[in-house]
Design a protein around this nucleic acid. Structure first.
Lengths: 375, 375
DNA sequence: TTGTAAGCGTTATCAC
DNA sequence: GTGATAACGCTTACAA
């Protein structure tokens, strides 16, 4: 564990210190040009403020006074919430520029409006959550829709209950109790739950796990498979639904064990299982990552996929490092994300929002084939 | 693009509507028990409030009055910022419980204290940023340190300049201008830049790219390699430093092209290059993901690694789906994250913070071997 | 240990 | 189109 902190070795990189103000004042104009367009004006503003000697940042009241207008007019000049004559507006903005006023203080606006503009998202430990490739397209869609509405996405740990959140998204598949829930419920913070537990007062967004898995199982049955094994997730709503879907077709499916959608973990589990020489012709997994682990470990043991063993996944994510195309249940990740974000926006607006269940689709790849009885 | 919104098919999942209050009031006690410990008391509080008929949420002033203490005493009872006798404190908390008061309003606290408790982190498009396995351990460390300090991490898009952020982390390797910079500078929001451009007023956290790549190149040179190719990133500070490190040893290294740490993209680029039958004995990459792409494509063309071609990466992340251990430059991802978070905390406290450059370490795996001249 | 009072910097509601 | 004024709900000197 080498954490030594070296001297800065790059001669090109000059050490610049705390505030933009100090940097701008102390370094002269030589530093200009390395950043965005309007940096020049910022520097100017900072200099003006430094010169004018005022210690605290200017407020809207200062701007109003400097522009010779009322506080409300100044406010409206920035917010545009009511018409202001172009002349006065220009006067206000000029005064703001002169004073180095950077716009209305978001903290004050938030208090006044009762909203923070921030939506929390609980995803569990980041490296676990985002290692799962299925998480990202959904998060992207959420972030895009909320961002367009001016809302920020805050990654919630367990210690963020005291932050001002306009809504919270719960997306920790597999965890069914949550300490922060009580706090949020008490605050009446809208909560949108993705494939999660059935908490009161929340909006759910889900996919049709059971139908998807049943369709997948039917596909295997048609191929002649009769004895299948199941790689599962930790007990949870999706897991229960999915297992039920498989058992609609294969009531006696054998459970190998449970693990997360983590390649290494799944590999360990699968390697141990395959080493027992199990009497199955197909393995159904709960994610494409798990399925990839089965493919890799099966081959390592000399089993051909799908000739000796059929393998199916779930999610429908890309696995370019695998040279078979997985048979899988494709879930509409982006649509799920958009549905979540829409639900959030509407709940923030005080609307009633119905639960959502999105359909899934079976995609047949090269990893499943006709069942072959062991010789 | 099937986004049909199905009827909710699960009979177990009951539709529950907007606020926790409404749910609690309308559903009776039957819903109890599906969530955390103190849910019972929340329900109780909500009921009390509903019964008492007050339309707006109780404030600290209401609690103070109900408890028969002053506003400041009530505040202190929650914050613990100054001693309060155990008796009065109990009285205040009891009154709070009775009124269904969920604790001090964070929005008001934030305005008063001038801090939001939120740190922005700019990482670019989420699915790009987090698809890179090197991003996660760092983000995890940042999140852990900041979380322990009660700070939340907000994923910044380009439209979040209006949110109240106590500090911002810029971690978009490769993008050298940023529209939001000017706004942040004007607001004097502390900015910590990871491996990024040299903006005034910011604190930098970096690794010793050049030394790492020079060590790697020296290793290849010792193995007899003389003609090497370079897979690069888009032009950026890290890329320039790393290339310089390689050229310290191989001044004439050939550049294949630039791409992100994205397996599929790298595969395309590399496949085209290898198809030209290039005259090199080793390929140096800027990430382990890129290196994995080279290994995969080389094999696809019948080249053995490292016998016919040596391949080196950067980052030192796990690639369990690859069956060689990559020779790579290991960067201290968690330490980098901690350094970033520490810098953020200290800048928020108003401290001057020096730039940080962390050392890297060469790890020799199975993907590099002695140079073999083409027959 | 407790109470009094002064903001924090906005936006929204009214009048004009 | 503009201006006065009242919140928003809290924390923190300062005084008792």
């Amino acid at each position: 564990m080498r954490e030594t902190q070296l001297e800065n070795t790059s001669p090109l990189r000059k050490k610049v210190i705390p505030t933009a103000l100090r940097a701008a004042v102390s370094s002269g104009t030589a530093l200009l040009g390395s950043c965005g367009e309007s940096f020049r004006s910022n520097r100017f503003d900072a200099n003006v403020r430094a010169v004018s000697g005022s210690t605290r940042s200017p407020t809207l009241a200062d701007v109003a006074e400097a522009a010779g207008v009322s506080l409300s007019t100044a406010s409206l000049s920035f917010s545009g919430n009511k018409p202001v004559s172009e002349a006065t507006r220009a006067r206000v903005l000029a005064a703001a520029a002169r004073l180095g006023y950077a716009g209305p203080n978001p903290l004050a606006r938030n208090l006044r409006q009762g909203r923070s503009g921030v939506v929390g998202i609980a995803v569990g430990p980041l490296s676990t959550a985002f290692r799962d490739p299925a998480a990202l397209p959904m998060l992207d869609a959420v972030s895009e829709v909320l961002g367009a509405a001016g809302l920020g996405l805050l990654l919630m740990g367990d210690d963020h209950a005291r932050l001002p959140l306009d809504a919270v998204i719960y997306d920790i598949c597999g965890r069914e109790t949550w300490a922060a829930y009580d706090d949020l419920a008490a605050r009446e913070v809208p909560l949108v739950v993705v494939e999660g537990p059935d908490w009161p007062g929340t909006t759910f967004v889900d996919i049709d796990h059971r139908a998807g898995c049943a369709a997948l199982a039917a596909h295997l049955h048609e191929l002649g498979h009769r004895r299948v094994a199941l790689l599962t997730l930790e007990p949870s709503h999706p897991q229960r639904e999915r297992e039920a879907g498989v058992r609609d077709v294969f009531p006696d499916a054998h459970v190998i064990g449970a693990c997360a959608s983590d390649l290494a973990a799944a590999q360990d589990l699968v390697a141990a299982y395959l080493a027992t020489g199990p009497d199955v012709t197909a393995v159904v997994c709960q994610s494409d990552v798990q399925a990839a682990a089965v493919v890799i470990e099966a081959r390592r043991l000399g089993l051909a996929v799908p000739d000796d063993l059929s393998v199916a996944g779930f999610d429908g994510v890309a696995t370019p490092w695998l040279d078979v195309e997985l048979t899988t249940v494709v879930q509409p990740l982006a649509a799920k994300g958009r549905a979540v974000a829409d639900a959030v926006l509407r709940r923030i607006d005080g609307e009633d929002v119905d639960d959502v269940v999105l359909p899934v689709e079976l995609r047949i790849g090269d990893s499943t084939g006709p069942a072959v009885e062991p010789a």
